[in-house]
């Protein structure tokens, strides 16, 4: 099963990290990533650039409104993600708890859906197609 680890950090913590030794941060993250690569569980992930470079497409109105970052009211910013292929929820939790993050940061851990999540809609045409696409319990 696949899990996404989503890094969420308060704006204050992001600012505080500006005063930290960036090389130290890179080294800590690098060692963490390497440990997951060597364990064969890390299959994807990336960091995100500064929220100031991002923008929001808001569907509260039609047509949707595009607003430049960093989005005013938001208290936590998504800063990056990892995708892990692990054997259980507990294993995902174990890897997440090893991330080199500090106060102000959270990892939201979400399982990536698979066919078993759509059993109640088994008759839906797209769900049937999807099931064929992926094969019963297949990887990927």
């Amino acid at each position: 099963m696949k899990y996404m680890l989503i890094m969420r950090t308060t704006a204050e913590a992001v600012e505080a990290s500006a005063s930290m030794d960036f090389e130290e941060i890179i080294n800590a993250m690098g060692a963490y990533n390497e440990s997951m690569i060597k364990a064969g569980v890390l299959i994807g992930g990336d960091g995100l650039t500064d929220a100031k470079e991002g923008f929001v497409v808001d569907f509260n109105s039609q047509p949707p409104v595009v607003t430049d970052g960093p989005y005013g009211e938001v208290h936590e910013l998504f800063n990056g993600f990892w995708i892990l292929e692990v054997s259980s929820r507990e294993e995902a939790a174990e890897w997440a708890s090893r991330a080199p993050l500090g106060p102000g940061s959270k990892l939201e851990v979400r399982r990536i859906t698979d066919q078993s999540d759509f059993e109640d809609f088994a008759d839906n045409e797209y769900i049937k197609k999807e099931k064929e696409w992926r094969g019963e319990g297949a990887i990927g």
């Binding site: 064929e132 696409w133 992926r134 094969g135 019963e136 297949a138 990887i139 990927g140």
Partner: peptide, 13 residues
């Protein structure tokens, strides 16, 4: 090879 897993089985198995 595993990238094809999804397409290798029809919905009836």
């Amino acid at each position: 090879q595993a990238s094809r897993f999804g397409a290798r089985t029809a919905s009836d198995g």
